[in-house]
Nucleic acid binder design. Sequence first.
DNA 1: CTGAAAGCGCTTACAG
DNA 2: CTGAAAGCGCTTACAG
Lengths: 330, 330
Amino acid sequence: MATVLDVARRAGVSSATVSRVLSGHGNVGAETRERVLQAVRDLDFQPNRFAQGLRRGRGNTVALLVGDIEQSVYSALTKHLQVALGEIGLDLMLYNLDHSAERLRTILEAAPAMGLRGVALASTDVIPMATVGPLLRALQQRAITVIAIGQRLHRAGIPSIVHEERAAGRRAVAYLVEQGRAPVAYVGRIAGSAVGSERYRGYCAALAAAGLALRPELVSDVSYRFAAGYEGTSRVLAAAPDVRGVQAGSDELALGAMAAIRDHGLRVPEDVAVVGFGNIDWGAHVRPALTTLSVHPATVAHAVAALLRDGAGGPLLQVIARTLVLRGSA
Amino acid sequence: MATVLDVARRAGVSSATVSRVLSGHGNVGAETRERVLQAVRDLDFQPNRFAQGLRRGRGNTVALLVGDIEQSVYSALTKHLQVALGEIGLDLMLYNLDHSAERLRTILEAAPAMGLRGVALASTDVIPMATVGPLLRALQQRAITVIAIGQRLHRAGIPSIVHEERAAGRRAVAYLVEQGRAPVAYVGRIAGSAVGSERYRGYCAALAAAGLALRPELVSDVSYRFAAGYEGTSRVLAAAPDVRGVQAGSDELALGAMAAIRDHGLRVPEDVAVVGFGNIDWGAHVRPALTTLSVHPATVAHAVAALLRDGAGGPLLQVIARTLVLRGSA
DNA sequence: CTGAAAGCGCTTACAG
DNA sequence: CTGAAAGCGCTTACAG
């Protein structure tokens, strides 16, 4: 592997000059610069990342911490972030939290020594800021850009990029009510999810605006995935046979809900309409196709990249609007 | 951030001794070791990754290159590999290939300078070995462990971990035939997929064994995702109205196929049975639930970790068996 | 068993 | 505009 010294020798200059040409810092004569670049090409020189990192005090890697890479929100985000970071020369290190606060802490504790450029925390789980807050602040103090995705941590001084949750939930439930789908159940408040409770508040707001009562038996607290949607909906159907609409806390939950409704001998949407959350890729391909609220991973990815590129001083809170995507299920 | 020198001073030893204690190489007196470990704890010392990497010539990072992180096979693999690598102290860098050979080449060209410990190439696309082969060999020559996942590159000297494809495809199609589902269509040979054509050969073998003719109008070449399954199946249904079974090249394609069958006014499985490939997470939750062939990401992940841990000398080819997972669709 | 010293490959004040 | 030199924080032969 060629070193900066090899390049310097071949170009007849010092290693300092090579470094200046490559970094763009400091002035170098046009002809000298050309000679250096030619030598770089000849030797196929690529700077050693460790040496660079050691000297500069940090590297080109951003850690992305996701709740669960198998969930579509996170894999879509990962994909787009990978592209957006690639465009500004940054690499992506992936950490799967598996919704574990313990794992989050472990990772954040190891982060300072890793020379990261930034940490993007994409988790909708409630974060125990008492223990995690100091860790995040420690990262910021070493000039590591910390960004929250999907959760509002801007009050703790962490730039946050989120989708609208409450307003979106309210809009979707209002739509169900307008379509004559009351009583509407809410499946998937998701205990422990910061986002889940926001969506649920949207549900409550929509009911209140329509003058409908909040019936506890119509609300199901479940966890994230399919089976939870199935079980939660089954329970609601048993407790409230008059339910005509279901707002699910996620598309996965919505799919489970649809299965439960059908296994209950009812039809979607004729008997019970279903709305999901998150516009998952297969949502358009199940039958009936899923009506849901959009998500915008590319927009998030670009916002993250911009924050990393420009350093501190960016907006502390960016809220991305969602659209109600109408398909067959509601 | 504490350095090894800080630790040395606090423990009253030299930095060499600290390094020896931490690495486990070289003998250190029991009492000295204790003093060093205490100092490490006191100062919360974590070795600087760049300095370590520069000195050792490589780091603790493994690059995982996946075809498309949004496909369930890859996200499940990523999740399990993350855990398996974590257990042996390695980090995971993720690169999304987006099924682009061009991108693969770009990434592999940048890899040597990154001080990677290993490169795990999880792609089922046909790899242009004329250009990519030399890049992989260059990595191996710098003692970077290269591992192929999902595709057999063992003849090129690259340890490969794969699932059985042909035998599994044959078994599934034979099952459809046994159940009286002939003629069986094959949707998703997937031009450009090394794995897709293996699965298709299993289909051919099953037909031959059953004495059935290979009817070209029953075979659809499509790309990976849902929409392709929908279109491919629509075409097959139009060209061969007598079709009674569909073997899909993936679960995504199977879901598209089920939608197409239903939009055609037919029922799954009564009129047309469908078998997928890959046991995707939502497969059990659609209705009818998807019959499919299993996949074993945890097994793959452990095999990869073992190869990284033990370095060269491991098995060149590991084949993981698949099970036919019977559910409602066939 | 332990330490002094060199060196991995960069970058950046400093000097000219 | 350019170069000589120091130094980032480790690890490892080498010497004792």
